[in-house]
């Protein structure tokens, strides 16, 4: 499948420091890519270079096969971008603001599209209020509506839910889900890792200007935490032959303590692995009352990642 986003040795140096060093990332079409990293890691600079708003010191960035230094208007119309900071033109209402961008992106039936999207994020009541008077959360949602207005093929979202209240997060998540379901490619840069975890197919983690890791979440988990554990509550735990589970080749050991069965897996506790364990317990007469997998969250992975981990992952 063609890459929707591709960078080759992308580097950006400022006078006294290197913000982005040799970043080569790939985002396939129809993929959701989580772009993570602490503040100052170089994520926003990378995004700006992708968009052609910063000139790379070295390397090239392609969006939809178009290089950032010579991007045609037609390609720009296929991009939707939500920036880190939401800013609006003086004295424009939300509707006027969206109308301006709708015309810029040559959107058909602008008013209809504006009404539909505003309704989706529950901003219909504020359509004719001045955008600069909005709360931060409302501005964030309005920014997202602007990014989605022209139904872009590729979405680049920088912190899309950072300023939202829980209800707003749900609204935006639902909106994004529905858009993603329509075959869009998305790059999400965020600090709200649970959000990325729920959405992203693959993750790229940046630190100190370098792309440290780029893989699926499961692979990253596996690399960082070789073992996963499934905690099972059985109806009659003492009568169950725990050793029988060792026949499964991905089970390393089992442990029964305080009436709870712990099954240690090599690798991640994928849905398939959980199904196999469940089936094996049933076959040996066990009755599962409760079962849940214990594995490293993205947040834990992100926090615990070390230089050694990176080397291991890179290997």
């Amino acid at each position: 499948m063609a890459d929707a986003i591709r960078t080759d040795s992308l580097t950006k140096s400022f006078a006294d420091f290197e913000a982005v060093i040799d970043v080569s990332l790939r985002v396939e079409a129809n993929e959701i890519y989580g772009f993570l990293g602490p503040n100052g890691a170089g994520k926003t600079t990378t995004i700006m270079m992708l968009l052609g708003l910063e000139r790379p010191t070295r390397g090239v960035a392609y969006l939809l096969d178009s290089p950032s230094h010579a991007r045609e208007f037609a390609v720009r119309r296929r991009l939707g971008v939500l920036g880190e900071r939401q800013v609006f033109f003086d004295d424009m209402t939300a509707r006027e603001y969206l109308r301006f961008f709708g015309r810029l992106y040559s959107v058909d039936r602008i008013e209809h599209r504006i009404d539909a999207l505003l309704e989706r994020v529950n901003l219909t009541h504020a359509a004719d209020a001045r955008a600069r008077d909005f709360s931060r959360g409302m501005q964030q949602k309005l920014g997202l509506v602007r990014a989605l207005l022209h139904d872009p093929e590729l979405l680049i979202l920088d912190e899309p839910v950072s300023a939202l209240d829980p209800r707003g997060v749900v609204e935006v998540r639902e909106l994004l889900h529905s858009e993603l379901g329509r075959g869009k490619t998305v790059l999400i840069s965020s600090h709200v890792l649970t959000e990325v975890e729920q959405l992203a197919d693959r993750i790229g983690i940046m630190n100190k200007g370098r792309l440290m890791v780029e893989d699926t979440l499961d692979n990253i988990r596996q690399a960082l935490q070789p073992e996963a554990r499934i905690q099972i509550e059985l109806a009659e735990p003492d009568r169950f032959p725990t050793a029988a589970l060792l026949d499964l080749d991905f089970v390393s050991r089992t442990e029964l303590r305080d009436g709870r069965l712990s099954v240690h897996l090599m690798g991640v506790a994928s849905p398939a692995a959980r199904a196999d364990v469940s089936r094996a317990i049933s076959q040996h007469g066990g009755v599962i009352v409760n079962m849940h997998a214990e594995q490293m969250t993205l947040e834990q992975a992100f926090v615990t990642i070390t230089d050694e981990d990176v080397e291991r992952l890179a290997a």
Binding site: L51, F73, G83
Partner: peptide
């Protein structure tokens, strides 16, 4: 910056 996300140069 927001303006230049779009089809403008």
């Amino acid at each position: 910056e927001v303006l230049f996300y779009g089809p403008i140069d």
